[in-house]
């Protein structure tokens, strides 16, 4: 599986910079060891809210926590890429990835919500919903 961003078309979910509370060096620290494309996407989310950056950031986090030796499907990742079947994430690596996503975006994902996430697009939609609720609160 190549380490590159999904190719979903950008759109405007009307969320101000989801990571605007962080300075650049804080994002670099939170994502130490993650791929450059993940960090670039996270930095882009300081001021913007493009879907492509959300998905790239989520994809990078999910890929990072894949268990050792996980088998992956061939082909470029997309919003339809399945976390378990295509990326090889198991229950524990899903927990780790969700912890990092919660930490980064300052949200909480319940077990029931976690069970609904099957694809990268599912994770992105849930994240956007959480962020919109935060913004409107």
């Amino acid at each position: 599986m190549p380490d590159r961003a999904p190719t979903t078309e950008p759109s405007s979910p009307q969320i101000p910079g989801a990571l605007s509370r962080f300075e650049e060096d804080e994002i670099n620290q939170l994502l130490r060891g993650f791929s450059d494309s993940t960090i670039e996407a996270a930095l882009a989310l300081q001021s913007g809210s493009r879907i492509v950056d959300f998905e790239a950031c989520l994809y990078g986090i999910l890929i990072f926590f894949r268990p050792a030796g996980a088998q992956s499907a061939e082909g470029l990742p997309s919003g339809d890429t399945r976390l378990r079947e295509d990326l090889g994430l198991d229950s524990l690596s899903m927990m780790e990835a969700m912890f990092k996503i919660e930490e980064l975006f300052d949200i909480s994902i319940s077990n029931a919500e976690l069970a609904t996430i099957e694809t990268i697009a599912d994770a992105r939609r849930l994240l956007e919903e959480k962020l919109r609720l935060k913004t409107s609160a």
Partner: peptide, 10 residues
């Protein structure tokens, strides 16, 4: 520091 909301799974 998270208000006891989040702890590293590991």
């Amino acid at each position: 520091a998270t208000g006891w909301k989040r702890v590293d799974p590991m």
